[in-house]
């Protein structure tokens, strides 16, 4: 399952990010494999989604969120 399928307020644990650029970028932002995230917002019409990880709320485009695999 990937992050785009998690509903608002749904929690998920990051299993893998299968894109080197995204994986590095998110790691630097404090989003590491194994972290628990909560989806907070979804923009309409297939726009970006936002998730909370620790104390930060990070938004990312849907096409990038497809690369984030979760449990």
């Amino acid at each position: 399952m990937n992050l785009t399928l998690v509903p608002i307020s749904g929690k998920a644990k990051i299993k893998e990010i299968n894109h080197p650029f995204l994986r590095t970028k998110l790691l630097e932002m404090g989003v590491a494999l194994g972290n628990e995230v909560t989806v907070t917002m979804r923009a309409p019409f297939g726009g970006p989604i936002a998730f909370r990880c620790g104390n930060s709320n990070i938004s990312i485009r849907l096409e990038d969120a497809h690369h984030i695999l979760v449990n």
Partner: peptide
């Protein structure tokens, strides 16, 4: 360069 949109949404 890559079009990136990975942005923190501040409180």
């Amino acid at each position: 360069t890559r079009s990136i949109y990975i942005m923190e949404i501040p409180d």
